[in-house]
Design a protein around this nucleic acid. Sequence first.
DNA 1: AACCAGGGAAGAT
DNA 2: ATCTTCCATGGT
Length: 301
Amino acid sequence: MDYLIRDSEIIVNNIVDFDPKHILECGQVFRFAQEENIFKIYTKNLFCVLIKDKSCVIIKTAKEDIDYFVNYFDLNNNYSSIKNDLLKIKDISSAITFGQGIRILNQDPLETVISFIISANNNIPRIKKIIERLCKALGAEKENYFAFPTLEALASVDVQFFRDIGAGYRADYLVKTIKMLKDGFDLESIYNMPSIEARKKLTTLYGVGEKVADCILLFGYHKNDVFPVDVWTERVFNYYYPDQTNISRSRKSQKLTELFNNYSGYAQQYLFYYFREIFNNIVEDEKWTNQKLSFLPTLLA
DNA sequence: AACCAGGGAAGAT
DNA sequence: ATCTTCCATGGT
């Protein structure tokens, strides 16, 4: 076991497979704050603090929420073994080394659905602000933060509310989807569905297309056999398959899923995180050689 | 089929 | 400093 529980703390010893920075920056979660080596994470109506030490990470939370966070951080999943299996499929060792501390969180389905509708065609700083305002306006007030709103609270407001918190044209999608959820769309039933069927059901929600559905399946339901393709992972695909850059995103996602099977979600996270970072830093970073830069034309195609 | 609909970050001029 | 581009979905 890579962790132990002591009172109201979880101590994670294997920090090769657990890095708060990697976990929080790989695009799966929006409610967190970082200061030095302290990370605050808000999820559903719960809260925890991560303290990064030399050789361990300490997760502090309320004693009664320990079990929730063991599951939330996916602590009973062996990421060393996942990485090992991934490398047998394709040599993505640089991506795995770069984002070695990534874990796929087990997030609340309702929060994931609402958050990723907001995420569509949007940037992370703005997504975070919209969700913050949403929680502040409709979430239960806790000691130092606001919980994510319940479905009932979400259903109590109108389109103008979502416009006012900055959701833009996604306001309509949110109102319509929340009404569907209120009218009996069963988020729990998704857990037991095969991914293909689950995706079909999720895309009937307003504002949920294929990419958003895949994010919900991966981050809200831990379905590992989906590969969300956004602008960054499309560049990953174009890099590996320079002769197929013109096929649709949907086909690209399908091809990547065929390649990685049940490891698709993990592969997506390592590859997304690595390619986004290297591309963002590539121009100003002088240590990148011409040889390493040579893949850029296909990467950007 | 091509375009638009918030808006803020980030790059370009 | 100000302009332009980016972003995923659904409707026209």
